[in-house]
Design a protein around this nucleic acid. Structure first.
Length: 264
DNA sequence: ATGACATATGAGATATGA
């Protein structure tokens, strides 16, 4: 049966990581790849490198920080850059496109949810507000009853199972009860957390390992990159995969590619 | 412990990340 791979990867600078990115794209050949933290303006993104590999490139960049993109074999349609409520000053953290050509129709968003640290500051308030706006937009998208994949770096550790040392994260913006509650509110709109649904109760499933203190070597990881599936997408879910071996490559991002396979 | 790492900016040291 025909399948399509939809992946998400916080690349931590596409220009600093172009060789790593190309190596993985060639290895995995995803149909759709959501990138976060491209850390460049739209016109600085090395688009031609991926176009030469057969990809369309949809970019929502900004100077220095943040920035998201979607690489796709099928042509993007109905592109949205930014969340409803964003203005010209808002960080570039959301881009969405519809793919109706190729193996099955699906709408995909690349999401870079704010970190929010330190808690108790305006940064945390901004995170919670952003989650509320994302949830509102997700609610609208669900009304269309499409296969929908909201993929990205959510900066949310959903449960203690999703950290090697959950006790180290108790006061962190990624794991505070209010953060997890807002994530659950979003899930409860009817989304499936694809990775966890495919591996219920399984410990040690991580997508991020800090650069510091030998976190990778000690497997001190957290699961913060998620693919949320609408019911129509969940019905087509075949497999999931986390390419954690990429974290051991030279010049790695601190996140690894995380993906699903959908049937046609 | 405010460090260890890593990147962007801009040309030294600071902001940001999770």
């Amino acid at each position: 049966m025909a399948v399509m791979i939809i992946a998400t990867w916080n690349i931590n600078s596409i220009r600093a990581r172009i060789e790593t990115a190309v190596a993985w794209v060639k290895e995995a050949s995803p149909d759709v790849l959501c990138l976060q933290e491209i850390k460049c303006e739209t016109n600085s993104f090395p688009a031609s490198v991926f176009e030469d590999l057969g990809y369309n490139v949809t970019i929502h960049g900004q100077k220095s920080y943040n920035g998201v993109a979607i690489l796709s074999k099928p042509k993007p349609e109905d592109v949205r850059r930014g969340l409803p409520g964003d203005d010209d000053e808002s960080p570039a953290r959301y881009v969405e496109a519809l793919f109706s050509a190729g193996p099955g129709m699906v709408r995909v968003a690349s999401i870079y949810l704010p970190n929010g640290n330190p808690a108790g500051t305006e940064k945390y308030t901004f995170k919670l507000d952003w989650m509320e706006r994302l949830t509102a937009h997700a609610r609208e998208l669900l009304k269309q009853e499409e296969a929908l994949v909201l993929a990205g770096d959510y900066n949310v550790i959903p449960a203690p199972l999703d950290a090697k040392y959950p006790e180290n994260w108790l006061t962190d913006a990624l794991f505070l009860p209010e953060t997890r509650a807002r994530f659950r509110i979003m899930l409860n709109l009817g989304f499936t957390d694809a990775i966890r649904a495919s591996m219920p109760e399984k410990p040690g499933i991580y997508t991020f390992w800090d650069y510091q203190a030998g976190a990778w070597q000690r497997n001190n990881g957290i699961r913060i990159d998620h693919l949320l599936l609408s019911p129509q997408a969940a019905d087509r879910l075949k497999t999931t995969r986390i390419d954690s071996h990429v974290r051991g490559w030279d010049k790695p991002s601190d996140h690894v590619p995380t993906m699903i396979e959908l049937t046609q």
